[in-house]
Nucleic acid binder design. Structure first.
Length: 551
RNA sequence: GCGCCCGUAGCUCAGCUGGAUAGAGCACCGGAUUUCUAAUCCGUAGGUCGUGGGUUCGAGUCCCGCCGGGCGCACCA
């Protein structure tokens, strides 16, 4: 509906431009939005205010002229002008009910926007190093990344979700050494634990598995011989756990990429060489540097190959992003932890060096999650083994509550996750509020069937009262929410919308009975709530939250 | 010291790319169910949008200074 109104307003402006004698400036950025209060109408537009300069008229006068043009449009019931120049539009009730009828009773496709030709989006997220279990911060990134991928798909983009594994390098060595030492300690050897080793209990478990399968086979071999096995074995075990956690969290990836593979295939060397040839990388003091300062106004140039000859993490990431573009993606979204924000400039520089538009790379920084437990903030660090794992959180509060909570906040606001509250809150948590709306509607149909009805009857939309039309309007905004939250990469907008919709429904449920003695009225209301349920269900689906029939 | 994010009700947070009288949940207090699930609904109360300037028809939103909190500033990842 918003789209229809937009077109009507756009057409009115265009007509005025023509009659005013000309294609002057391009049409300004006119916005059509749902006003803050119902008394201002269904939609309002700032058209007159933003184009007052072009027409060289006062906003109020221009608004009057546009309004009289819009009054001729059969779409509108009424058109009003309010100072300082808003045009408030009320759409005919029959237009609303006609469009509302078009929402399927029960169809997961509703809200899907037309496919966008030539747009291929890659969303890379989580991408946690396989050095330890996922913690709550990863959980937030997972929920947000997954919801963004779902939203973009719904908004018509061709989307792939991807996880990049840093399965090589110093940290992996460090990880392998940690397991190796634990392994030796199991056999009674007095070996000191590495200073920067991973101290988590899970390392012990993995050491035990090695001992169970291989006995003391590695006890006397040199560290250099044993380490590769311990590194890759530990990494694999942990990655399997990560995959299991993500699966339980309803996060799916289309592709798993491996840093090691980029090294093995020569892609890293290849990328460096071509950038060297292009003059984007230079040598200094025995190392290779990316001109990130010049390319993206980074604080300084960044090393991609050390004097030791070893490449840096950035080098692999350059090769990785070159690969992303080669695979035909036109938009690349990287979901990172906020502690990586210093990485944005150099990555943009890398993209530019590769000859791509830096704006096509869009890093999303997920702010810190602080966990509150027993009224206290819990500090977290993977290496020290002190953290609350995603698994623990899911065990306590459940997948639905965890996902919903993560998706209630904007990704760039810090989030305090109060474990006790979220757990205890089972009756008041917004997630249950929304789910309850779905369950309530479902139960209405159970009741209707229990009464011996086999058909829902034929709705008569002229019977709808004001509350019902309001509910319809809210439902019909769903595609707009898909569009807006996809465009803004902001799933929390959808979350808040669902709470509002659930609120409207609960109010309606309390005020009006759906099943009544009047057959036509019942049929109409059944048709209404069936569509409300479709929207709630589809909305929750985009957040990755279940829509139960019963609660 | 430099850079990024944040500062909105007692608490946790929305406020959609500048729009009309700043919202929701929790907590507190008071009410509502003979009828489709009370995990619900209705009502009261709660604010100098950290602070001081600036930009314009109009600022919680944009710009600058300051205060406070978080995160970064590697030939680590």
């Amino acid at each position: 509906m918003r789209q229809k109104v937009k077109e009507a307003v756009g057409a009115a402006i265009e007509t005025m431009l023509l009659s005013a004698g000309g294609e002057k400036s391009p049409p300004p950025a006119v916005s059509v939005e749902v006003p803050p209060e119902e008394k201002f109408g269904d939609f309002s537009t700032n058209a007159a205010m933003v184009s007052a300069k072009i027409f060289k008229k006062s906003p109020l006068k221009l608004a009057e002229e546009l309004a009289s043009a819009l009054r001729a449009d059969p779409l509108f019931e009424s058109v009003a002008v309010a100072p300082p120049g808003f045009i408030n539009l009320v759409v005919k009730k029959s237009e609303w009910t006609d469009e509302f009828r078009g929402i399927p009773d029960d169809n997961s496709e509703y809200g899907k926007l037309p496919a966008r030709e030539g747009e291929k989006v890659l969303v890379e997220f989580v991408s946690a190093n396989p050095t330890g279990p996922l913690h709550i911060g990863h959980g937030r990134g997972a929920a947000v990344g997954d919801a963004i991928a779902r939203l973009l798909k719904k908004a018509g983009y061709d989307v792939a979700a991807e996880y990049y594994t840093n399965d090589t390098g110093l940290q992996m060595e460090n990880l392998g050494r940690s397991t190796l030492v634990r392994y030796k300690q199991r056999f009674g050897q007095d070996v000191p634990f590495p200073e920067n080793g991973y101290q988590g209990e899970y390392i012990n478990d993995i050491a035990k598995r090695v001992a169970d399968v291989h006995g003391d086979k590695f006890l006397h071999s040199a560290e250099a011989d044993a380490l590769p096995f311990f590194s890759s074995f530990t990494g694999e075990v942990i990655l399997d756990d990560i995959k299991a956690d993500l699966d339980r969290f309803r996060v799916r990836f289309d592709v798993w990429t491996s840093e090691r593979a980029f090294h093995a295939s020569g892609a890293v060397e290849g990328a460096l060489n071509s950038l060297l040839a292009a003059g984007m990388i230079y040598e200094n003091e025995g190392a290779l540097w990316l001109k990130s300062k010049e390319l993206a106004d980074d604080e300084k140039d960044r090393v991609v190959k050390r004097t030791s000859g070893a490449t840096t993490y950035l080098a692999a990431d350059i090769a990785y992003h070159a690969d992303k573009y080669k695979r035909g993606f036109t938009k690349i979204i990287d979901v990172w932890g906020a502690d990586h924000h210093g990485y944005v400039a150099r990555m943009k520089a890398a993209v530019k060096a590769l000859g791509r538009d830096p704006d096509s790379l869009q890093p999303i920084l997920i702010q810190i999650v602080s966990l509150k437990k027993d009224g206290q903030i819990v500090a977290m660090s993977t290496r020290s083994g002190k953290f609350t794992t995603l698994k623990e959180v899911l065990d306590e509060v459940g997948v639905d509550a965890a996902r919903f909570t993560f998706l209630t906040r904007s990704h760039d606001a810090q989030l305090e996750f109060d474990l006790d509250l979220t757990k205890r809150q089972t009756s008041d948590n917004p997630v249950y509020y929304v789910q309850y709306a779905h369950a309530r509607i479902s139960n209405i149909f159970v009741q209707h069937q229990n009464a011996g009805n086999t058909s829902r009857g034929i709705p008569d939309w002229t019977l709808c009262n004001e509350d019902e039309v309001s509910l319809m309007k809210k439902c019909l905004a769903f595609p707009d929410l898909v569009e807006d939250s996809a465009k803004g990469l902001a799933p929390h907008m959808l979350t808040h919308y669902l709470v509002e919709l659930a609120n409207m429904f609960h109010k309606y449920y309390h005020a009006s009975r759906v099943i009544t003695p009047d057959a036509a009225l019942t049929a109409t209301r059944l048709a209404l709530v069936a569509r409300v349920r479709t929207v709630v269900k589809n909305g929750l689906e985009l957040l990755g939250v279940s829509a139960p029939e019963k609660m």
